[in-house]
């Protein structure tokens, strides 16, 4: 990271939707800094017009997602002393989303997908109110740790490398939302069909979403694969289909559950 004069070279992508290029900034190396600190010092000294999004500087708001040395990471949680010494530190915007300027991308794709996902849908309220046991409350907690940094969405090759898949693919962040709701005992909506319709089958479980998650959510093992198995139950497993036919058991739709 630092050369003999305790300098660090930051190779920051500068540009907008019309194009851009990397610009090198040689900055004094300061012990204990994270990448966002150095970017802020670049703003304060050499490039006041450098655009970057940030907020909490504590790894909890999910604003400062970028690609540091080619890997999606939070700038505020990437210590400079963990990066290779003596080499420029490359900082680029997230590739999957349109660039607004410099390191700031338009992540509205994610909000638009979120709007298409039906909210929590409890059935009719029983006498005495809704109740959940602690073990069921705990089950979905892992998924609620998501800070919506959208790095899983960014690294997912289904949309990162295939822009044409965006209209039919929700992405890992929303697959764990489906998982959270599907594993909620009070939610009556059939999330398996919804997840299938939103492109769960396009995921080929290469686990990059899990690798980049700053909250260490096991997105693939605990969210996507359990949902894939549930979709198999609902759509592909002939024995499960026969079982439903013989027993007459099937999941109620939200409307049916609400009607009692």
């Amino acid at each position: 990271m630092a050369d003999a004069e305790d300098k660090v070279t930051m190779r920051v992508w500068r540009g907008d939707e019309n194009g851009g290029e990397f610009t090198d900034y040689v900055m004094p190396a300061v012990e204990g800094e994270v990448v966002l600190d150095v970017v802020h010092r670049i703003q304060a000294s050499e490039a006041p017009d450098l655009a970057c999004r940030w907020n909490c500087k504590a790894g909890k708001c999910g604003s400062c997602s970028a690609e540091i040395n080619g890997l999606p990471r939070l700038m505020c949680m990437t210590r400079m002393d963990t990066l290779p010494e003596g080499q420029p530190v490359t900082v680029a915007p997230m590739k999957t989303f349109p660039v607004i300027r410099d390191l700031v991308t338009d992540v509205s794709f994610n909000y638009e997908v979120a709007r298409t996902i039906p909210a929590f849908e409890p059935g009719p309220e029983p006498e005495g109110g809704y109740r959940m046991m602690q073990v069921d409350v705990e089950r979905g907690q892992e998924f609620r740790k998501c800070i919506e940094c959208f790095m899983c969405q960014n690294v997912c090759h289904v949309i990162r490398d295939h822009e044409d898949n965006k209209p039919k693919y929700a992405g890992p962040r929303f697959f764990i939302r489906f998982a959270e709701l599907e594993m909620h005992p009070l939610d009556v909506n059939d999330r398996r069909e919804l997840a299938h319709d939103k492109g769960l089958g396009m995921c080929n479980i290469t686990k990059c979403c899990t690798e980049v998650c700053p909250e260490h959510i096991k997105i693939t093992d605990n969210g996507i694969i359990p949902m894939k198995e549930r979709v198999v139950d609902a759509r592909y497993d002939p024995v499960a289909w026969l079982g439903r036919k013989l027993t007459g058991r099937r999941k109620k739709t939200a409307e049916e559950a609400a009607a009692g």
């Binding site: 992508w13 915007p93 349109p98 660039v99 991308t105 794709f109 638009e112």
Partner: peptide, 9 residues
């Protein structure tokens, strides 16, 4: 669903 011009390298 937004599909913008991708920037970045």
């Amino acid at each position: 669903v937004a599909i913008g011009t991708r920037g970045g390298p």
